[in-house]
């Protein structure tokens, strides 16, 4: 047969040692892992582009009204923002450790680090809650609803629109991440993962790092305008 021939081996070989986590349409565990990981990286690219809209709005309004952004930024507490940065960085570290232990097949430390990550995410949200409620208390709302007596400038509302929408969408991502990591932690406790198969741990960790990266940019852009 000159044209297309068929592999008698490929398929049968894959079935010979068929691990339970291998889905039928993949030839090998390696292919499945690579596909999942590429899928996650592409998803992260879409996440970056989702946030890019807010970054563009930020850049436009900051270029137009730098003095307003400077004044409005002072209403944010940079200490709380900095604390939250450290909290998220720590959670990124613990989730990286979780992947490390998953690769080594150390179930106990994997589970510990996953729960630690979830806990740190919880700390972040608690701090965020206090920040938000303090703002609402002072009638600092986004856009047209901004009514804080202490700072009345045109376009302050835009700064807080950007602040609330950016940190709001980011916070939503933190909540989603907490949910995902809790699920992964429960699965890890159940013993779903091994040094052979830890794809869900790794791709959830990738997602969590992205949440961290977004905050790495939000912190100086929103809290540290001099």
């Amino acid at each position: 047969m000159a044209g297309v021939s068929e592999a008698a081996t490929g398929h049968a070989e894959a079935h010979a040692h068929h691990p339970p986590y291998l889905q039928h349409h993949f030839v090998s565990a390696e292919q499945q892992f690579d596909a999942a990981k590429l899928g996650m990286w592409i998803f992260l690219a879409t996440e970056i582009l989702l946030f890019s809209g807010m970054f563009v709005a930020y850049a436009v309004y900051r270029v137009w009204h730098p003095e307003v952004f400077q004044a409005a930024s002072k209403l944010l507490d940079w200490r709380l923002g900095g604390l939250n940065t450290l909290v998220l960085l720590a959670s990124s570290y613990t989730v990286a450790l979780a992947v490390h232990y998953a690769q080594l097949g150390d179930k106990k430390r994997l589970v510990q680090n996953l729960w630690l990550t979830v806990a740190l995410a919880g700390v972040f949200m608690v701090v965020k809650y206090f920040e938000y409620s303090e703002k609402f208390h002072h009638n600092i709302f986004p856009g047209g609803n901004y009514a804080y007596e202490g700072l009345q400038l045109p376009y302050v509302g835009q700064f807080f629109s950007i602040y609330f929408v950016m940190t709001g969408i980011h916070g939503l991502h933190v909540l989603v991440g907490m949910g995902v990591l809790t699920w992964i932690a429960l699965r890890a406790q159940r013993g779903d993962f091994s040094s052979e198969y830890y794809t869900p741990v790794e791709i959830s960790a990738l997602y969590w790092h992205l949440v961290d990266i977004i905050w790495i940019f939000l912190f100086p852009l929103l809290y540290l305008i001099h």
């Binding site: 582009l49 890019s52 809209g53 309004y61 856009g143 835009q158 929408v165």
Partner: peptide, 24 residues
């Protein structure tokens, strides 16, 4: 993949504009 997320944030901001008057 590259364009659709921006539509997402655009219509989201449009909806927020109507709901919360974000003023962007």
């Amino acid at each position: 993949i590259l364009a659709t997320p921006v539509l997402g944030i655009t219509v989201l901001l449009l909806a927020l504009e109507r709901i919360m008057k974000v003023g962007i």
